[in-house]
């Protein structure tokens, strides 16, 4: 059986073998994929999964510690922390996915052009990226949100802006080392112009290392969005969001109500952790040196 499938689709099947091998070799990566599944489930079905309305207040049951009824306890308005934490998944993930997608597209285009053609284009782009990087990135994001206004779109733009340099640099480097690769030259001999060589031959080969970066950046984008909300620049209460929940919970920690901040914080951490571990696993999967 294995023989037959090998002959039919050798590449696809060897890719699968490799992925399975990485997963088997590395239980941590397996765990990361399982966690990712859970978070996606929460993001898609969130409101349908939770026992309470995340916005419903109940003054009679405010500040209750975790119990069977309220797994993560209740907050100062009697809202169920667990429900709020789970429902917030969709918002936080959407912000980071949208921001990373935006910076991926812009950064990849800038980087590919600079890496392939070089020259003054490259020099200008490099100075531009240096300028962005010269700002403390988080503060730049703060400034953008403060200037443009406190909306979810602006958080996305700000997070995307500070991610662009990483993609542009990475793509520039990956394209640059392949610019004079044998297969790129061969593609030119086959009648492909520069644009086609870049888009169809060089860029797809630069994708695997970028996937790793995407995964790591998704985690970082979540941290940024939550950080912005934490200092009051971003999502506004009462919308459930992890950063705000930690910020609000922080006020109660000194009086011993630890669950308000702990659970959203842990959940947030787990989400970032998942993406970071996933990046490592993806790296193993796409790294040709890891293949036999």
């Amino acid at each position: 059986m294995a023989q037959i499938s090998m002959n039919k689709q050798p590449a696809a099947s060897s890719q699968w073998h490799h992925i399975l091998y990485v997963l088997r070799e590395n239980p941590v990566t397996m765990l990361a994929f399982a966690l990712l599944g859970m978070f996606l489930l929460c993001a898609i079905l969130g409101p349908a999964l939770v026992p309470y309305d995340p916005l419903a207040t109940n003054a009679a049951r405010a500040l209750e510690p975790p119990s069977w009824e309220h797994w993560f306890g209740t907050d100062n308005l009697g809202r169920d922390v667990f429900s709020r934490v789970v429902v917030a998944t969709r918002l936080d993930l959407s912000i980071s996915v949208a921001a990373v997608a935006l910076s991926f597209v812009i950064g990849a285009m800038l980087g590919a052009v600079a890496g392939y053609w070089g020259g003054w284009l490259d020099a200008v782009l490099n100075r531009l990226l240096d300028t962005i990087m010269a700002f403390p990135l988080f503060v730049l994001a703060m400034g953008v949100v403060a200037a443009l206004g406190n909306t979810i779109e602006n958080i996305i733009y700000a997070t995307a802006l500070i991610n662009i340099p990483f993609y542009a640099r990475l793509v520039r480097a990956e394209v640059n080392i392949r610019r004079d690769a044998g297969f790129a030259q061969a593609a030119k001999l086959a009648g492909n112009g520069d644009l086609r060589v870049l888009a169809l031959h060089i860029f797809p080969n630069a994708l695997p290392p970028m996937m790793v970066q995407v995964s790591l950046n998704l985690g970082w984008a979540i941290l940024n969005a939550a950080g912005l909300s934490f200092i009051g620049l971003g999502v506004r209460p009462p919308t459930p969001e992890w950063g705000i929940m930690v910020a609000e919970g922080a006020n109660f920690i000194v009086s011993g109500e630890w669950w308000l901040a702990l659970f959203p914080g842990l959940w947030l951490m787990l989400a970032v952790f998942t993406f970071n571990l996933l990046g490592d696993g993806l790296r193993d999967m796409v790294d040709p040196r890891k293949r036999s």
Partner: peptide
Amino acid sequence: RRDIQMVFQDATGSLNPR
């Protein structure tokens, strides 16, 4: 273009891995 072609030194590097 079709009349002038080339065989590259590094056969591996001259083939697109994809």
